[in-house]
Computed example of a mutant assay.
Amino acid sequence: MKVKPTPQLSIGTLAGVLALSSVFLPAAADEPIGDAIRDVPLFDAHMHYKEPAWEHYPVKSVIELMDHNGVAMALVSSTPDEGTIMLLEHAPNRIVPELRPYHGGFGSGNWTKMTGMDAYLEGRLEKYPHQGIGEFHIHRLDTSDEALFRKIIDMATQRDIHLHVHSGPEPVRWLYALDPDVKIIWAHAGLSTPAVDVHALMSEFPGILADTSLREWDIAGNGASLDPDWERILFDFQDRLMIGSDTWVNSQWDNYSQIMASNRAWLAQLPRDVAEKIAYRNAERLFGREISMDLIGTR
């Protein structure tokens, strides 16, 4: 998977962007939140705690990183699922667990071909309090997987939880064709999907949510003002977006503070009500949690 370089935003750069948001945007009812974004709690809607991170970033250090960056809570899925459970057991007040299908020799490219995948998912869902299924990849739509996806949709529907789907627009449309009422969080807002197509899909399906992990640079535009197409997305779908880090490799953990700083930098250019929705209030509503800075330093 080709991934854009992680933003390397220093605290000084963040301060500069925050200052620009105050200087160049007009003061009005929709005045940008600016420097006050520092005091807003964040919900990281796309965190992984994969096995290669366990030694380098023990569970205690993950929560400390969250604390350092004002991340009050996170939606976590892991390869294997044991990583998520380790974090959940260490800090149950800070972790919303998701069930990722990947384990053993089955990963993003072949997980739908594992014999007994439906039984594996059902067993983990019965044993642990997962609040979603995913993040999982659909690299290439294979309609022969329909029977499995119908079972997964049924598992999610029975529990009233979301599927966290990493794909382009067409697999999302296919899932909605299988069940128009399926609940979906679109990972990375489509990742490489152009902003105009992101807007089109979110307009087409009023129930879909998206996390913006790995889209920080796309959203930030030239740094002084948001990308116009992304600004339209942020305002039109402000009730359906969440930020994220995507700690899919250890280098993302190494750069976690810079990633969160880059998210605060573009959130700072939004009005307070819009910024707070995307930063944490949408997640608060979605998962039925109370999210505040009071969680920092707790488990």
Results as ranks from 00 to 15, higher is better:
P5E: 10
I11L: 14
T13E: 15
G16Y: 07
A19K: 14
L20I: 03
S22V: 06
A27V: 14
A27W: 00
A27S: 13
D30L: 11
A45C: 12
H48Q: 12
Y49W: 02
K50Y: 01
P58R: 03
V59F: 06
M66L: 13
H68D: 15
N69W: 02
A72R: 07
S78I: 06
D81C: 02
M86N: 11
L87T: 05
L87M: 12
L88A: 05
A91L: 11
N93F: 04
P97M: 03
R100N: 12
G107T: 04
N110T: 08
W111N: 10
M114S: 02
M117Y: 00
A119H: 03
L121D: 05
L121W: 05
E126A: 12
K127R: 15
P129F: 06
P129G: 07
Q131L: 12
G134L: 13
E135R: 06
S144L: 07
E146C: 03
D160E: 14
H162K: 08
G168D: 14
V172Y: 04
D179T: 10
D181E: 14
I184M: 09
I185Q: 05
A187C: 14
H188A: 09
G190W: 07
S192M: 12
S192C: 06
V198A: 14
A200Y: 01
S203I: 00
E204S: 09
E204A: 14
F205C: 02
G207S: 11
L209R: 12
L209F: 15
D211W: 04
D239E: 15
D246M: 05
W248N: 04
S251V: 13
S251I: 13
D254L: 01
S257M: 03
S257K: 07
Q258F: 01
Q258M: 15
I259T: 15
S262K: 03
A265W: 04
A268Y: 04
Q269N: 06
P271I: 11
R272T: 09
D273W: 01
A275C: 06
E276D: 14
E276I: 09
I278E: 04
A279L: 04
N282K: 05
E284D: 07
L295T: 06
I296K: 00
R299C: 08
